[in-house]
Amino acid sequence: MVTNITNLGRSGVSDWLIQRASAVILALYTIFMVAFFLFHPNLDYVAWSSLFDRTWMKIFTLLALLSIAAHAWIGLWIVSTDYIKKSCVRLGVQTAVILALFAFVIWGVQVLWGA
């Protein structure tokens, strides 16, 4: 058993499962957005804004945002543990990644529910 404290799920299975679940959500979100663009060839601000006025879309988008954050956290954590062998540098990179992702999520919430 190798113990770690900077990975998201604290265990290999949960990281693995989160990464796959978040990938599915992101795939669905991508398909939805592509379809939306295809059905609205002359997309304007009104249509775009009315899409995001709907609560289910806000939730769906937030879910996608959280999925990106989780997916990126796990993915970049793995990359950093593979390639950055100096632990102080690795910890710095991991902290930066986590803070950035945190900021993106808060910013996203603000965009979705803000004015």
Binding site: M1, V2, T3, N4, S11, G12, V13, W16, I78
Partner: peptide
Amino acid sequence: LSSLDDPFSVFR
């Protein structure tokens, strides 16, 4: 199983 349930042992 519990000794393998970490992000490295199997999941790499």
